[in-house]
Nucleic acid binder design. Structure first.
Length: 316
DNA sequence: CCTTCGTTCCGCCATG
DNA sequence: CACATGGCGGAACGAA
């Protein structure tokens, strides 16, 4: 079973700490068995967390058993991290253990050097400070989380939930993740369907939110949507639509739509035995060949490999 | 793998 | 003047 170790340092933010405990701890496979074993590890038997004192059962040795180490943020990002902890994180990275930070936890990962040369995110209030202290890290404050494969970072506290669900989806597929999301009363996909991108609220009365449009788009992925059609639906000119998209989602209409289509395809691959041809059509790809090509390009594996990876676990 | 052709994106700028 | 809009054109991209 996949073991998740959560690193509880002195001064940890209780919310950041409890998010992975709850989400991974409650995740269940299709047959009802726990999907993860969750450990809490600390370098001292007791840590303070907000106004709490928490007894931590497991020492740093627990990190040796981990397949994933989750690093929650510290309330004060200037708190020095014990050198031994940094050492253990570096060793874990070299072993290929997956490292994930929540909120200001990115500072801990950065201090260990495992973010060097990678894109990363953190709480938006702390993003500038992270970039200043660790110039080798490419800080992007405009996404909910960044997935570098074995090193993942997430933005403010609530984005830690998105990141945990994202990892569950990677490990066990969308169905298990959707169940975990339901347990947390958390929408699997944020309004509009693209979990990766923060939808910035419009500044005020100026302009209106794209969310209804995004919902419509994700419900219409099977249709060949052109920019002109989308703009018409929103009663905006093409030029203004493009601008709103960049402001509110950080991406372009076509890229956003592409991700929505990939998501739909992943869902169909996992939950049905439709042919690739049929899935390609229902997800809005012009042909099975372009579907295969684009799927591999974005997800990293072919549709067939993806399907096999997630249907074997759910034998019935 | 390459080529062809339509679409999309974005800086620029005139306009309201 | 500050600001938002939307059309234009070329470069980049994606479909087949």
């Amino acid at each position: 079973m996949h073991t998740v170790a959560v690193l509880a340092l002195d001064g940890v933010v209780p919310f950041d700490l409890s998010t992975p405990l709850e989400v991974f701890g409650r995740a269940r496979l299709a047959d009802g068995t726990p999907a993860y074993r969750v450990l809490v590890c600390a370098s001292t038997p007791e840590v303070t967390a907000g106004g709490l004192a928490i007894r931590v059962p497991c020492g740093l040795d627990g990190l040796h058993e981990a397949d994933t180490i989750v690093v929650p943020g510290l309330a004060d990002v200037s708190t020095p991290v014990p050198p031994l902890v940094l050492q253990r994180l570096r060793e874990a990275a070299e072993r290929g253990v997956r490292l994930a930070s929540i909120c200001a936890g990115a500072f801990t990962l950065a201090a260990a050097g495992v973010l060097d040369g990678l894109r990363a995110t953190t709480h938006w209030l702390a993003a500038a400070e992270l970039a200043r202290r660790y110039p080798a890290v490419e800080v992007d404050p405009d996404v909910l989380y960044v997935d570098n494969g074995n090193v993942l970072t997430s933005a403010g506290a609530a984005a830690g939930l998105d990141l945990c669900l994202h990892m569950i989806r990677r490990d066990h597929g969308a169905a298990v993740a959707a169940h975990a999301a339901r347990i947390s009363v958390m929408p699997m996909e944020r309004d509009g369907g693209q979990a990766q991108f923060i939808v910035h609220a419009p500044p005020s009365a100026q302009g209106c939110s794209l969310e209804p449009l995004l919902r419509w788009m994700s419900a219409s992925v099977h249709e060949p949507l052109t920019l002109a059609a989308i703009a018409a639906r929103a009663n905006l000119s093409i030029r203004t639509l493009s601008r709103r998209f960049r402001e509110q989602t950080g991406t372009t209409p076509q890229r956003w739509l592409h991700h929505a289509r990939i998501h739909r395809a992943q869902y169909l691959l996992e939950t049905t035995d439709y042919t690739l041809d049929r899935i390609a059509r229902q997800a809005g790809f012009g042909s099975a060949t372009t579907f295969r090509d684009r799927f591999k390009g974005t997800v990293g594996v072919s549709p067939q490999t993806y399907r096999r990876r997630f249907t074997v676990a759910e034998t019935r």
